[in-house]
């Protein structure tokens, strides 16, 4: 039983959510938002998608295994923590540079890592549960 309208909405919802999540991630330092919120938001897009299309479709959509997404997130955060060592600073010291008017620094990288990890985590949990518990009718 396919429902075309629902499928369209779910696909649209996914992209809107990812876009909105990225927006929240980038502005998170100055306004409400940040890695955690953005991560859950993006994942909820995938959640909707998974409910409509099944978990396999989600896995196809994200191409790589969610485990690697989690790993990437953790790695990004770790890298941002390690970078300051090369400047002779204690780990996790924030390093800031400016790109035009915008401040860019390791905390942003860290936040991105959090975002990627949270997204990957929820996708991984959802797809696993759906798969094992046979929700892909």
């Amino acid at each position: 039983m396919r429902n075309l309208i629902l499928e369209k909405i779910a696909t649209l919802f996914l992209y809107v959510m990812i876009g909105f999540a990225l927006f929240l991630l980038l502005r998170g330092h100055n306004s409400p938002g940040g890695g955690f919120i953005a991560g859950i938001l993006a994942a909820s897009g995938f959640l909707m998608y998974a409910i409509v299309f099944g978990s396999e479709a989600v896995l196809k959509k994200i191409v790589v295994n969610p485990r690697y997404i989690i790993g990437t997130g953790l790695l990004l955060s770790l890298i941002s923590a390690i970078i300051p060592i090369f400047w002779g600073l204690p780990p996790m010291t924030a390093i800031w540079g400016t790109l035009g008017k915008i401040h860019v620094g390791t905390p942003l990288l860290f936040d991105t890592g959090v975002f990627v990890l949270v997204t990957g985590m929820i996708i991984s949990i959802i797809t696993n549960i759906m798969d094992v518990l046979k929700w892909n009718s």
């Binding site: 940040g34 955690f36 991560g39 859950i40 949270v118 985590m121 949990i125 549960i129 094992v132 518990l133």
Partner: peptide, 20 residues
């Protein structure tokens, strides 16, 4: 609390899987 909430999600998912 922010991190606690998100971790709560992870824990909830874990317990549910465990329970299943």
């Amino acid at each position: 609390i922010l991190t606690a909430i998100v971790i709560g999600l992870g824990i909830a998912a874990y317990i549910l899987a465990l329970k299943y």
